[in-house]
């Protein structure tokens, strides 16, 4: 079950994503993870993390990636550790047992 949640800003996308993740856990799914790829603290709040703590959460660092040559002569980025290790180092436990991963803010407009 790999679900991406999209929508315009303000549509309630984050509320739906976070509440869905918690309800999957409450309905008995184990090891649910939620990934905040939208660089806002609201997913953490929706998952039940208190405001004071949400602002201090540590995003995943780019050091988890290695640049390697791909078969077409280009460069691709791959994880240099197991998912279990990434979760151990960076996942934040939330009240319903959903593990939260935060992607870092992308500072450079237009890059990538």
């Amino acid at each position: 079950m790999k679900i991406a949640v999209a929508g315009k800003g303000g549509s309630g996308k984050t509320t739906i994503a976070g509440t869905l993740a918690r309800l999957l856990a409450r309905q008995g799914e184990r090891d649910v993870i939620a990934i905040d790829a939208d660089s806002n603290p609201n997913l953490a709040l929706t998952l039940g993390i208190p405001r004071a703590k949400a602002s201090r959460l540590r995003p995943i660092e780019r050091t988890v990636l290695n640049r390697v040559a791909d078969s077409e002569g280009g460069i691709k980025l791959v994880l240099n550790r197991t998912v279990t290790d990434v979760l151990r180092e960076y996942a934040i436990e939330t009240p319903d047992g959903v593990k939260l991963l935060l992607m870092g803010k992308v500072e450079h407009a237009g890059a990538g």
Partner: peptide, 9 residues
């Protein structure tokens, strides 16, 4: 395991 991704707007 189940994964929910909140993607950028």
């Amino acid at each position: 395991r189940p994964t929910v991704v909140d993607i950028e707007a």
